[in-house]
Nucleic acid binder design. Structure first.
Lengths: 239, 239
DNA sequence: TGTGTAGAATGGTTTAACCATTATCATTAT
DNA sequence: ATAATGATAATGGTTAAACCATTCTACACA
């Protein structure tokens, strides 16, 4: 019948007030909060309590704190970073394995490419081709590290093409967290790298004619091959 | 060439030490940290600084703090709550709209049901049928609120059936956040509610014979219909 | 004109005290 | 004996005042 009376903590009230001001646009990204010693008076509290509130806001990714004179709390642009970090925690704790993450990635990236292909503009294609040629260059120079980075950039750019921030956030969360496995488990392999390049060529070609089915099917193969490589390596390592 | 020298804050060091202990399993869920006045001595710091560290850990969803004697910081089970909250922030700030969320949900839930169907056990089917009959009961009693709750439970249970925590976390994040729109934008409609029930009947039947394609296609229709209803209502409201 | 240094503003930390909440245990009334 | 009542102590929550560390700014000086 009744809701449990929420127990009030002063710092929580401060967090909510500042958070609401940010959400309502009263505080825009880039704006600077007053100094701690001023804020403490505005909220009629102590500096310690105020600082606990700032810690929470910082952890939520809403503010960033700089040191020194003219330092202070600055309103940040909201992004996927807190989600990336939370997911990283779940992975590190063993609740989520590479297998889980890969299975999810295959599904999500298939959908994502399908949408991206259906919304691709000429500028998008041009951007993808620039990235593709960069990747090709790194492939020819056997620069595995930069090849991987560019490959990832293509994946992220396809996320942008969906024009849907949810897909972009999820794409970033997955890639940031799967990236840690790359160096350890993804050995350079010229033949397979070429296959990956060919995949992207196919995807771009499909996007040009809005063939979202082919684009989607190709990326799914692409991601599967990537993950299979890693899984193989993991099995070898644990044998 | 160099990484920016991270500036050290005492409370960050405390956060990392405790977080690592949790991740490594040295501190298991349910365990209680020593009292603040003891911890402060163990870390050789002040209570204020220690409390800032506890605020961060609390915000990360790693600990829960209870009041009074025999209170203190208790290690929590990790769950999707921090992700749910971060996504909620992105939605409330307007970075993510209902349309964005729905588009994502349709894709993810299609994949999720496909996997769930391929892994369904007899016990899973039984559990779904129990929920289905509950929903049917609420439908017949015109209990719209409980019907929605049960509908959501079915969606969440299908997430469990994937045996993949990533899908479960995402499913929870989406549903918790889309739920706030239900009351406002989902009017009771006997005919359409029946359609939804029929959908679940089809899905369960398909799962029984491991027909993941039909199950997936059906849930996609189901979710689309749900969202279309809401979108219609939103359009009417904003006219 | 450039360079270095002193000052001041700001966040980071410490200390010590008091307040508020709650489990526990002793006291008391029935 | 048992149940209500109240005192006690442990714990988190808050406050205050001081000092430290970092960094921007302005001024003096070469």
């Amino acid at each position: 019948m009744f809701k449990k009376a929420k127990q009030s903590r002063v710092f929580q009230d401060i967090v909510e007030q500042i958070q609401d001001a940010i959400i309502n646009g009263k505080l825009e990204p880039g704006a600077k909060l007053p100094a701690e010693r001023e804020l403490k008076d505005m909220f009629n509290t102590s500096r310690g309590t105020l600082r606990e509130a700032l810690r929470v806001l910082e952890q939520k990714g809403l503010i960033e704190i700089k040191l020194g004179v003219s330092g202070g709390a600055i309103i940040k642009h909201m992004d996927a970073e807190p989600i990336v970090e939370s997911l990283a925690l779940l992975i590190r704790s063993g609740e989520v394995s590479l297998k889980h993450l890969s299975e999810f990635r295959i599904k999500i990236e298939g959908s994502l490419v399908e949408i991206a292909a259906s919304r691709a503009t000429k500028e998008d294609i041009k951007e993808l081709e620039i990235l593709f040629n960069k990747a090709k260059g790194y492939y020819e120079k056997d620069d595995w590290g930069n090849f991987l980075k560019t490959d990832e950039k293509m994946h992220m750019y396809i996320g942008t093409m969906t024009r849907n921030p949810v897909f972009q956030f999820v794409q970033k969360s997955i890639h940031d967290n799967i990236h840690q496995y790359y160096e350890e488990y993804l050995p350079m392999n010229k033949k397979r790298t070429l296959e990956n390049l060919t995949d992207f060529e196919k995807i771009i070609k499909a996007m040009k004619i809005n063939d979202s089915q082919t684009a989607s099917a190709t990326i799914i193969d692409h991601v599967k091959r990537f993950n299979d490589k890693m899984q193989e390596k993991i099995k070898l390592n644990t044998k």
